[in-house]
């Protein structure tokens, strides 16, 4: 059974693998055949080789980025939870706060990131704030819509049992929001790494963002791409982690289709 399942997965991944390999192969052939300069477009093999040779420097710069991502994302989760509850319990809060949340999404990161660095320095704090700024809104919307998805009959039932508004929230609205929460988590975790790198790009002592900037300034696109490879792997890792957390925390969600049972 298990063997067949694994083979099935491998079979389903086959088209994607073939497509990606073909692209990389075409890229490699073009680089070798055209004789294009390595400082303009390095071949994939060159990128992989350099990633391996510079693995220690890459790792040393991955750790701060990962730290900023996780701390910023945690801050965003805490804020999203607290504020989503505030707007769920109070229509006044919803009317007061929601426009501000939406406005926060209209700020161009390109302009805001250098300012945040200017205000809060080159340390960890501006990165945390920028990651939180980028990931907060999707999480808030996911939670708010999740609460609203609670079935009326479940709420009526709890009301008939004499449950208070707070108990209705804990027993029905919050669990109803979990599938939405995990969907939002998967969307915003992919923004989180990019946001951290962007914050570092605007100014940092260490991190993948500043590593990319330095490599670019030293005419080493191979190292830029090596860092890009690492950041992609990081995002994929965090993305998979959300599935693992979901399976542990909410095993009742039908994870194969993503829909609610």
């Amino acid at each position: 059974m298990r063997g067949r399942m694994l083979r099935n997965h491998a079979f389903r991944a086959l088209p994607a693998l073939v497509a990606a390999s073909s692209l990389l192969l075409a890229w490699e052939i073009y680089c070798r055949a055209s004789g294009i300069s390595e400082t303009t477009l390095p071949a994939p093999s060159q990128v992989l080789l350099q990633a391996w040779l510079n693995r220690e420097a890459l790792w040393a710069n991955t750790v701060p980025t990962l730290r900023a991502t996780l701390l910023g994302f945690s801050l965003s989760l805490v804020l999203a939870f607290l504020l989503s509850m505030a707007i769920d319990f109070s229509a006044l809060m919803r009317r007061a706060l929601f426009p501000i949340f939406i406005a926060s999404q209209t700020l161009p990161l390109v302009a805001i990131a250098p300012l945040v660095v200017l205000w809060f320095g080159f340390g960890l704090l501006p990165k945390i704030l920028l990651v939180a700024l980028v990931t907060f809104f999707p999480m808030l919307v996911a939670l708010a819509e999740g609460y609203a998805s609670t079935e009326n009959e479940v709420e009526d039932l709890l009301a008939s049992m004499g449950a208070s508004r707070w108990k209705r929230f804990l027993l029905a609205r919050l669990p109803s929001a979990l599938p939405y929460f995990f969907a939002g988590l998967r969307i915003s975790i992919t923004y989180a790494v990019v946001a951290a790198i962007f914050a570092e790009y605007a100014g940092a002592a260490k991190g993948l963002g500043i590593y990319m900037l330095n490599a670019k300034n030293n005419f080493r696109p191979d190292l830029v791409l090596a860092a890009v490879l690492v950041s992609s792997l990081l995002t994929l890792l965090l993305f998979s982690a959300t599935w693992a957390v979901q399976r542990l925390a909410a095993p009742w969600i039908d994870s194969t289709s993503g829909r609610r049972p």
Partner: peptide, 13 residues
Amino acid sequence: FAFMPQRDALMPW
């Protein structure tokens, strides 16, 4: 009163 709603309203979680 103990109330049983139209659909079962069992909580999937």
